[in-house]
Amino acid sequence: MSAPPTRRPHRRRAAIGLLVTGLLVTGLLVTGLVALPGTAPAAAQPAGPAPADAVTWAVQPSSPDGPTGRNYFVYDLAPGAEITDHVAVRNLGDQDRTFTVYGTDGFLTDDGAFALLPADEPATDVGTWIHFDQREYEVPAGERLDIPFRLTVPANATPGDHAGGVIGSIAQLRTDASGQQVNVDQRVAARVYLRVDGPVRPAVSVESMSISYDDPVNPLGDGDVEVTYQVRNTGNIRVGGTGAVLLDGPLGWDLARTDPVDLPELLPGSTFTVTERITGVPPALRLTATVDLAPTTVDEALPPVTRTAGVWAPPWLLLAAIVALAGWFGVRRWRARRAVAPAATPASPAATPASNGAPDVEPADDGAASSPAR
């Protein structure tokens, strides 16, 4: 999916220095028609001269008396129920044509478009519940044929939504660019949406998420953030809604918020991947992206779903300058300490004359006469 136009975040450059120092595309629809993957819409041929054997036709919900204005076949049925309905195949060409008419299952493509199984892949769900009396029907030139079919819900059908389509196809031999004869199967269909009675469990999850940052060399420059996340319908009914990405820096610094992206209508079990690119993001050391989903069903809004991922966004050049400056001050301090003269060494005590073994004699006090021993 193409990301919406990117939004430039609010830029607060003064805060950078403080921090450093301290994010159902529907298919082509013409009167209820679905263009199937790998085929051009048969009722809308490319501009220019049409080949001599070109065929144009339309397929839409109908009744025994003709189309009733429905765009899709939409049913709410209980397990075991059976109904009869009609599909109109209109031959818009000037020759009689034989069309193959049958039911098959629906799915979601990678880009979010509704599609039906290829002709060579057998149905396993609602496509097997649709039954025609025959497989091929001839429709005269310029005429419409209203073809009946039965839809029988199995008794053990799972509750919730089931999607498929009723196809009208025609195969023709064509010559490709290399001159080879190829069998081209062109198909046009009307969608089928069937809800089987039972417990309804709408649920959506963000199954995976990644974030990357293109770090600029210039510490005052900006980089780009790319956020990719996958949404899965984990419930049993169709779910749509919107998704947005919030980008924050440290301490809850609000950097950016993308505009909401419309999610395609997700069938039960389907996934859809969204990629958002946000430009002009400063290297704020740590970036945190939060996916904020607002899912909805055809009936109601569901509780928000969020998921968060982070990525480092360091201002490398500025950090390198700070490290170099700290190293320079460290070297200067070390040299200054070495340049200081060593402290003076204390003098040794004066030498004492050697003793000759004679006892020390205290000198007599001056003026005191010694008395001889008696």
Rank of each mutant, 00 (worst) to 15 (best):
D111N: 11
T31M: 08
H131L: 04
A284I: 07
G310E: 15
P268K: 01
A203T: 00
S355I: 06
V204N: 00
V139A: 11
L263Y: 03
T290Q: 13
G106Y: 01
A321I: 12
G164D: 04
Q230W: 00
V281L: 12
S169N: 05
V34S: 10
G367Y: 07
P118M: 03
E143L: 02
D365H: 05
V217H: 05
S348I: 09
V87A: 09
G327H: 06
S355P: 04
S355K: 11
P342N: 03
T100F: 07
W253Y: 10
V206F: 07
L325K: 04
A50L: 13
P268E: 09
A15E: 12
D85L: 01
E276L: 05
P67C: 06
D120F: 01
Q60S: 04
N91I: 08
P303Y: 10
A326C: 07
R187I: 04
D110M: 06
R232L: 00
L36S: 02
A14C: 04
D176E: 08
T26P: 05
L28V: 10
G112Y: 00
A50G: 02
A309P: 01
A294Y: 00
R191D: 06
G27Y: 01
F132W: 08
V87K: 00
A244G: 04
P295F: 01
L29R: 12
G269L: 09
S169F: 00
T352Y: 03
T308G: 01
A301T: 15
N233G: 02
G367I: 13
T56E: 14
V87Y: 08
E362P: 07
S62M: 11
A14E: 03
W334R: 15
L145E: 06
H162Y: 11
D133R: 13
L317I: 02
P51N: 09
A354M: 09
Q186T: 14
V182F: 10
P4W: 01
